[in-house]
């Protein structure tokens, strides 16, 4: 297998609040390979967005990375001087957000914003930056890029705004794109267009994408591999096909069962009982055991490690591997 572009090991993020320390990420590890889309799925508050922000070194205060490493081409970003990481940010590693209307600055034109980013990362003059901006806009399927550059964000539709965000992210030759719920705020038809664009960018440019979403439908359509995050911990990870066809972890099973499908018409929708555990006092043992229908003694005492159960398919559950399998 190829060398990973990004490799995250045992990433821990804590939020210090007045009520106590909230454990947002409890040792997350994954690799992102060149030219793949890795889906990061989970419920609200499981740490998806924090993971994405951590890759750019933008965990918002009072949060802080307290352990682990994030390697980009073998280089640990966490030990990099701030200025060097800042140069990578928006350069090699870029990010797009859930609500493009809020992520674009309302009082600058699209052109002004793109120029600013381009000229930050590449030594070029105004005109060259403008041409570059127009070119990137065209490459993400924007008609009349010259005109778009003159518009203000509020004059564009949601889909167009997200295309602008993507163009801005790619304008300086990004290799890694962190896409945090890029389609959640958009209409369904537009969603499909944006997802197609991402898949297309992966194919044509060899872009690696970390696609953060809560929507398993989106994952099935676009991702090569999936990582399932629960309470700041990856519980299952593997190729999309394997996850959907040979699902292992009870939590992932629950997620899949909760998707409304035409084939299950007439049956009540499945929901996972209980709620995501309190980040202030995570339960001992497996984080999922209070909600797990299959939990047994060991689950309450010992936290399971992420173990490989099939080719490239890993799961963190005492039901698989180890003693239970014997």
């Amino acid at each position: 297998m190829k060398e990973p572009l990004i490799s995250v090991r045992d990433l821990r993020v804590h939020f210090r609040t007045y009520a106590g320390v909230v454990h947002a990420l409890n040792g997350v590890s994954f690799d992102l390979y060149p030219g793949e889309i890795l889906g990061l799925v989970g419920e609200t508050g499981c740490g998806k967005s924090v993971t994405g922000l951590a890759l750019l070194g933008l965990v918002p205060p009072p949060g802080e990375v307290v352990g682990g490493e994030i390697r980009y081409r073998g280089q640990n970003l966490l030990s990099l001087p701030p200025a060097q990481w800042q140069a990578l940010r928006g350069g090699k590693i870029a990010m797009i957000f859930q609500d493009p209307a809020a992520a674009l600055n309302p009082v600058f034109t699209v052109g002004e914003q793109m120029e600013l980013v381009i000229r930050r990362h590449r030594r070029m003059g105004r005109d060259a930056a403008r041409r570059q901006a127009a070119e990137v806009l065209r490459s993400v399927g924007m008609p009349e890029p010259e005109r778009i550059l003159e518009t203000y964000p509020h004059e564009l539709s949601g889909g167009m705004q997200q295309r602008v965000m993507i163009a801005m992210a790619l304008s300086c030759g990004a290799e890694v794109l962190v896409a945090d719920e890029p389609t959640t705020a958009l209409d369904v038809t537009i969603q499909a267009q944006i997802l197609d664009l991402l898949v297309d960018l992966k194919r044509t440019r060899g872009l690696s994408i970390l696609l953060i979403t809560h929507n398993l439908g989106v994952v099935a359509e676009t991702c090569d591999r999936v990582a399932v995050l629960y309470a700041g911990f990856i519980v299952e990870m593997g190729p999309t096909g394997a996850i959907f066809q040979a699902v292992k972890h009870p939590y992932t099973q629950g997620l899949l069962a909760a998707i409304p499908r035409p084939s299950r018409r007439g049956n009540p929708l499945q929901a996972i009982p209980g709620t995501v555990p309190d980040g202030l006092q995570p339960p001992p043992g497996c984080l999922f055991h209070p909600r797990c229908p299959f939990a047994w003694d060991r689950c309450r005492q010992e936290r399971p490690a992420l173990l490989e159960v099939a080719d490239g398919h890993q799961v963190a559950c005492h039901l698989y591997g180890g003693e239970a399998a014997r």
């Binding site: 922000l53 750019l56 933008l58 918002p60 800042q86 140069a87 990578l88 940010r89 928006g90 350069g91 870029a94 990010m95 957000f97 609500d99 809020a102 992520a103 674009l104 600055n105 309302p106 600013l116 980013v117 930050r120 990362h121 965000m165 801005m168 992210a169």
Partner: peptide, 17 residues
């Protein structure tokens, strides 16, 4: 606290700008 400020940081723009 606006999102576009986070986005600007994510684009690697310096804090002064």
């Amino acid at each position: 606290q606006e999102k576009y400020i986070v986005a600007a940081r994510a684009a690697g723009l310096p804090e002064r700008t």
